[in-house]
Simulated scan of single mutants.
Amino acid sequence: MSLLTKLKDAQKDAMRAKDKISLGAIRMVLAEIKQREIDNQTTLDDTGITSVLVKLVKQRRDSFTQYKDAGRDDLAEIEASEINVLETFLPQPLTEEEIIALIDAAIADTGAAGMQDMGKVMGIIKSKAEGRADMGKISGLIKQRLSA
């Protein structure tokens, strides 16, 4: 079953359950997917939909942090609820060991020797870890490996 089908089924379920938070989050994702499809004049596959989900989760996390810092716990709670809904559609996160194994394999494949090869390594890892790990964290781990 494609990710788009899962999203549409979840939207129907949220409507039936009168779950406003889930329904709003899923509608937001579907609207963003439709907008990207119109802008690029293509149909998004599961990889494209995953990148939309990753972007939206990242935006929600930023908003959550800003609301918490501003003392708006009510709005922060809504953002946290939306993050939980969106994360149910993302692939299973990678473990620390899997991330390190991916980094080591990418460094070996590219023959990376220093920081100048960071882009090559990130390019390989991004396609494998998109939506399954925090790319900022991965970037930091790659820097540690390449500078050692």
Rank of each mutant, 00 (worst) to 15 (best):
M1I: 07
M1K: 08
S2W: 07
T5Q: 13
T5A: 14
K8W: 08
A10D: 04
D13P: 00
M15S: 11
R16T: 04
K18H: 10
L23M: 12
L23T: 02
R27T: 03
L30V: 11
E32T: 07
K34P: 00
K34G: 08
Q35W: 09
I38Y: 07
T42M: 15
D46A: 15
I49Y: 04
I49D: 07
T50A: 13
V52N: 03
V54L: 14
L56C: 04
R61P: 00
S63K: 04
D69S: 09
G71K: 07
G71I: 04
R72H: 09
R72K: 13
D73Y: 02
D73V: 02
A76P: 01
E77M: 11
I78Q: 13
E79A: 13
A80Y: 03
S81A: 15
N84D: 13
F89Y: 05
L90C: 03
L90D: 01
P93Y: 05
L94F: 02
T95G: 12
E97D: 13
E98R: 12
I99E: 11
I100K: 14
I103P: 00
D104K: 14
D104M: 11
A105P: 00
A105W: 02
A106V: 03
I107Q: 07
A108F: 05
A108P: 00
D109L: 10
D109I: 06
G114V: 06
Q116Y: 05
K120Y: 03
K120D: 11
K120I: 02
V121C: 06
I124E: 11
I125V: 08
K137G: 00
K137M: 06
K143R: 15
K143T: 10
Q144D: 14
L146G: 02
